[in-house]
Simulated scan of single mutants.
Amino acid sequence: MNRFFSLIVATALSVSSVAAQGVEELGPELVDRLYNSDMLDPDQPIGPSAYRDFVAANPPPWKIGYASSYAGNTWRANAMDELQNVIIPEWKELGLLEEVIITQSNLNDSTQIQQIRQLVDQGVDAIFVCCSNPTALNQSVKYAYDKGVPVFSFTGYLTSPYSVNSSVNYQLAGFEIGKWMVDELGGSGNVLVVEGIPGTSGSDSQDRGVRAGLATSEDIKIVGSVAGMWTDQVAQGEVQRWLATNPGQLDGIVVQSAAEMGVLRAVQQSGRENIPVAIGGELGALCYWRKNPDYISAAYQVWPPQDEVQLIWNIMMRTLQGQGPKIQSILVDPIRLTFDDIAKILDEDCNEQSTEWLSVGAASWGADPAYLDQFFLRPADPKAYKAQ
């Protein structure tokens, strides 16, 4: 009887242990804020990570692949600059990095799939991707997994159970931006929505949140939607065309970075300069606000490129070192910026044509060791790692 009872208890404990994996291993405050089902993309993977017990096949220095999907906007340029001029030299100096092999697919899923497989066949130890289609790469991610190569996705998620993802909670961020616009307009008005790249997880999640935020007032009407493709030139052209063919009342524009500078230019050229535009992290747009303090009440940093690439790099290095990520998606909070915040960063003589981006710093964007430690089973300083 005692043996039977002991077996029941042991089985129950085993089931409980399995059930507690993934998001349930995180602190309740973190879960309530960033993993709350009411404010989370329903497709965001939050189960236990496939790399909880991962051990890299090779010791450092490691060879890393970056299968980039696009290089045609200021965000990608700033992320690449951080990678090539800050991250790579630092981690080579630490003796943990041999090289980074970079490919570009120019938004062609088939090309990116082929490039990921080629990187695996070239012998890389890990691969990271950015802002990609959430399902298109899944077979190539599985191919990499079967070869012992983990894949990491930043600024958007992949739905493959064999990827590790990092980003802001985009649906939450979009909701806060949409709700901010509602408040900015006093709860009533006509709004144009400028999406990012439809079909990518970051764009679709944020757009869903924006629309939910705008829907908090029944007197807010979405009068149009265009795709800015996260690119200023594209967004400027799309908004110019929309404004030219829609001369009616327009009270506000919600836009996903990196496209706010293009939207601002389109609005200015149309002569409707008093329309508030949601501003993210582009320094040119923030400079416009700096010179016009009463223009808007806040800006939202949703994906600072320098900090985003630092975050996924730290997650990747921790995983290669055997620290064991608990969960498939490591999320961070959007950052709300006031005019006082911007005035401390930018002078009145700042450059409105700047193509640079605001970096909020690791301590504010998840790469801070104390924050990332929460997401790993065996947390340690990744820069202090010594091969056994």
Rank of each mutant, 00 (worst) to 15 (best):
K383M: 10
D183F: 01
A244M: 03
W62V: 04
G213A: 11
Q171P: 00
A57N: 11
A362C: 10
N58L: 01
G156F: 06
L243Q: 08
L377F: 00
G178H: 14
G27C: 01
L264K: 08
Y385F: 15
I8Q: 02
Q112K: 12
E282I: 04
E24G: 04
V9W: 07
R208L: 15
F339N: 01
E352W: 03
A343I: 02
G209V: 08
F5C: 05
L96W: 13
P150R: 08
E308K: 04
I312T: 09
D207L: 12
A244W: 01
F175N: 03
D207W: 04
W75L: 11
I87V: 14
W242E: 05
Q353F: 06
V194E: 05
A362N: 14
K326M: 03
I88A: 05
I116S: 12
A363G: 06
G186H: 02
A144I: 05
A363N: 11
G95P: 08
Y145I: 00
N36I: 12
I87T: 04
G22A: 06
D38E: 15
A56V: 00
T103F: 13
A227L: 04
G202V: 10
G187N: 03
L40N: 03
K386C: 00
I87S: 06
V267K: 02
F375A: 09
Y51L: 08
A67H: 04
I327D: 06
S140V: 13
M261T: 13
A144D: 09
E82K: 13
E238R: 15
G196W: 02
Y371H: 15
N2G: 07
S105I: 09
G148H: 14
I342R: 03
E218Q: 12
L94W: 00
W289N: 07
I330P: 13
A367P: 05
N78S: 11
A285F: 05
C287P: 07
V129E: 04
Q84K: 14
N85D: 11
D125P: 12
P293D: 01
G65I: 13
E195P: 01
